[in-house]
Simulated assay, not measured.
Amino acid sequence: MNNTIKQTILNKEEEMIAFRRDLHMHPELQWQEFRTTDQVAKELDKLGIPYRRTNPTGLIADLEGGKPGKTVALRADMDALPVQELNQDLSYKSTEDGKMHACGHDSHMSMLLTAAKALVEVKDELAGTVRFIFQPSEENAEGAKEMVAQGAMEGVDHVFGIHIWSQTPSGKISCVVGSSFASADIIEIDFKGQGGHGAMPHDTIDAAIIASSFVMNLQAIVSRETNPLDPVVVTIGKMEVGTRFNVIAENAHLEGTLRCFNNTTRAKVAKSIEQYAKKTAAIYGGTAEMVYKQGTQPVINDEKSALLVQKTITESFGEDALYFEPPTTGGEDFSYFQDEASGSFALVGSGNPAKDTEWAHHHGRFNIDESAMKNGAELYAQFAYNYLNQDEF
């Protein structure tokens, strides 16, 4: 543990919270983070850390240490959600109707900037370079891929990310070896039958029956075609069927999602979903077409990286701070950075019933225990310091 880093972050805690609250009041959706980018840029200017803006939003900044060495990237996402804030008693509640930082990205940026402030204080001790990636558009799984395309990972040896996490108790931090987040793909299926009058069903092919049968049978893929020790989630979240009470539907449109931790399983299940759709439609004399859109890759934490994170947690915050949050089938496009370099992803606990911060991410009542932010900022900085100044990997 570097004491200068710890003390700097403690000294900057009020600034960090104030910056997060400003961002919270002015949320911007994916690819619209223009003010947010400007605010981050102003802070980097104050620190004298050179950066370049990415198109259309986002920044990449490099802090060169006093000694040659590797490059470690630290990532924070920037975008808010199209969610109406329901926290009416907050002095810093969203000022944008229908928009809210309901996933904690405002805190991620604030923690990473505070980590940068601490690392500037010890830059002469750093054996290498710290790259700060402020990434837009995480919520639609497009931003990380685009940042990689714009050179965010060029020359990077290792990457580390953090997410504030309301399901983990405040004061606890988790970084598990192996599976952390699942892949998150989108399924769209269109069934076509033959419409007609509700009084003459024998002259029709009912798309509502086809779609309903498909949904009812779909879970057999999970329960009978996949290993029960290999988690898979298939959800149909949207169905649009029919036009009128006495008209038998000719068309049905379904949308859903597939979540896996294993890419081989992912491909197998996707193929099975399409087969189930086409064969179910054929039973009733209809047809089916599926569009499958790959979203995020699974986030799989590198073993050496996760163990170094765990060591950093215990050294900086004590053994009691180390927590092991089970993998989630939520998606995280941090995985695209891991396609370019080894790395890991940590969850900083923010759940505190006394402060009403246990609401689920993406809920209108979501908020964070701001006292946890100093832990996230320090973990960013201490991990970068430890990675650059060790020879284990």
Score class of each variant (00 low, 15 high):
308 L>F: 08
18 A>V: 06
270 A>S: 14
205 I>R: 03
3 N>Q: 15
111 M>A: 07
108 H>F: 02
144 A>G: 12
343 G>T: 09
374 K>R: 14
391 D>T: 14
63 L>N: 08
131 R>Y: 07
307 L>A: 06
200 M>H: 11
24 H>F: 09
30 Q>V: 11
162 I>M: 14
152 A>K: 05
176 V>R: 15
120 V>T: 15
382 Q>A: 07
202 H>D: 05
145 K>Q: 12
300 I>G: 05
366 F>S: 07
153 M>F: 12
69 G>Y: 08
389 N>G: 06
86 L>N: 07
18 A>W: 10
197 H>K: 12
244 R>S: 14
236 I>H: 01
87 N>S: 09
206 D>F: 00
118 A>M: 06
59 L>D: 00
153 M>P: 11
193 G>W: 00
87 N>Q: 08
76 A>Q: 11
389 N>P: 03
51 Y>R: 11
393 F>K: 12
7 Q>G: 08
28 E>H: 02
383 F>D: 02
37 T>E: 03
44 L>K: 11
209 I>N: 02
79 D>P: 01
11 N>Q: 14
64 E>W: 12
367 N>R: 12
304 K>G: 05
143 G>T: 12
7 Q>C: 06
333 D>F: 02
261 F>I: 10
44 L>Q: 10
146 E>D: 15
284 Y>T: 08
222 V>W: 01
299 V>Y: 03
84 Q>V: 14
201 P>E: 05
80 A>V: 01
184 A>I: 01
5 I>L: 07
59 L>G: 04
142 E>F: 09
362 H>W: 03
66 G>D: 07
214 F>V: 08
271 K>N: 12
39 Q>C: 14
336 Y>I: 03
283 I>S: 13
183 S>C: 13
218 L>C: 02
